[in-house]
């Protein structure tokens, strides 16, 4: 299914990329870590990972010119999957640490979890409800738990909300708009369900228009 799809995990110096790479390899996808423009141009799919603070991540992405490269590939139809902070970076901006602009591939902004009386960050396994059908989550039942570690959440357009979870509020933890996907949870740490999601993404990449 994912045979031949070359997936590039974008390296901008933040976050644990190795686990994502190994999970993709585990489901039979061809994965590599990098940020070289030629490699990005040749990839069938891009994964934007990330752990840490939004403003610093955007700073590094801009400093390396990755923002324009990602925007070009996304516009050309290459599937893009943001994971955790990577999902948040796909949006227009975040209020974290005084605020910063994001990549703007998805409409909406990122704000603090609204969970009065609960511990933030929200850490652990939470059941995720699919709000609609998607090839990204094919074969994964609604309310399957995924592993999350986060303090902020994206507020996408209603039609882009793919999955939601509950923590003080019901928040969007998976988003999709055309070929741009994002998950707040960590599929690479969510056991069989997470591996299935990554396999689905590899399948989407294999069927996407060939890279230029």
């Amino acid at each position: 299914m994912s045979e031949g799809a070359r997936i590039l995990i974008l390296d901008y110096g933040m976050g644990n990329l190795r686990s994502v790479e190994k999970a993709l390899e585990h489901v039979g996808a061809s994965a590599a870590i990098g940020s070289d423009p030629d490699v990005i141009g040749a990839a069938d799919g891009l994964i934007l990972p990330g752990v840490g603070a939004f403003p610093r991540a955007m700073e590094r992405i801009r400093a390396t010119g990755l923002d324009e490269l990602i925007a070009e590939r996304a516009a050309a139809g290459t599937p893009v999957l943001g994971i955790c902070l990577g999902l948040q970076l796909l949006f227009e901006g975040s209020e974290e640490l005084g605020g910063a602009e994001g990549l703007g591939l998805l409409p909406g902004t990122v704000t603090m979890l609204d969970a009065p009386g609960l511990k933030v960050p929200n850490i652990g396994w939470a059941p995720v409800r699919w709000e609609r059908d998607s090839r990204l989550v094919a074969g994964i039942p609604s309310e399957t738990p995924f592993y999350l570690v986060h303090s902020f959440v994206a507020r996408p357009a209603a039609e882009d909300a793919l999955g939601t979870a509950e923590y003080g509020e019901r928040f969007v933890c998976a988003a999709e708009r055309d070929n741009v996907y994002g998950v707040q949870f960590h599929p690479e740490k969510s056991s069989a369900a997470g591996l299935r999601l990554l396999a689905n993404f590899a399948g989407i990449c294999a069927k996407a228009p060939a890279a230029a």
């Binding site: 190795r18 686990s19 190994k22 585990h26 592993y147 740490k189 056991s191 997470g194």
Partner: peptide, 11 residues
């Protein structure tokens, strides 16, 4: 840690 991360996909 490396060998575990290569094969196990939970925290």
């Amino acid at each position: 840690a490396r060998r575990t991360a290569d094969n196990v996909f939970i925290p």
